[in-house]
């Protein structure tokens, strides 16, 4: 478990190092996630240590994002006179983009599964 956690921390540090050295706009966490996925694909297996460490962290993901989520209640006043525009944009914009993603994926998944059965 701890050994797995060490691997995750090392990949995160590697991602951060790459971001800082090459001045990349992508966060160390996401770079680390890409790197560890590629490494595992090359290795062709994942150790139990790493799998259990990752499962542990993912199961508390909601807890880790909570301090940020609470911030939403305290930043409302900073939108000043524009809160209506912001509220409508977030509500309607997110509804539309979720709809777009679901429709596109459903149509494309159906199309690709149909073409596979035709082959």
């Amino acid at each position: 478990m701890l050994r797995g956690f060490l691997i995750l921390v090392l990949f995160f540090l590697l991602g951060e190092a790459l971001r800082l050295v090459f001045v990349l706009p992508i966060s160390g966490g996401v770079l680390g996630m890409i790197l560890i996925t590629l490494t595992l694909m090359l290795q062709g297996r994942v150790s139990n240590e790493l799998a259990s460490a990752s499962q542990g962290l993912i199961s508390v993901l909601v807890l880790l994002i909570m301090p940020g989520v609470v911030g939403a209640f305290f930043t409302v006043s900073q939108f000043q006179g524009q809160w209506l525009a912001v509220a409508v944009a977030l509500l309607l914009g997110t509804a539309l983009s979720v709809l777009t993603t679901l429709f596109l994926m459903r149509a494309l998944v159906r199309a690709s599964e149909r073409s596979r059965t035709d082959d």
Partner: peptide, 16 residues
């Protein structure tokens, strides 16, 4: 929130 970094890396394991 510091743990969010390693937690993001951890997402690579289910992805693999």
């Amino acid at each position: 929130m510091l743990l969010l970094g390693p937690a993001t890396v951890a997402l690579g394991i289910p992805l693999y």
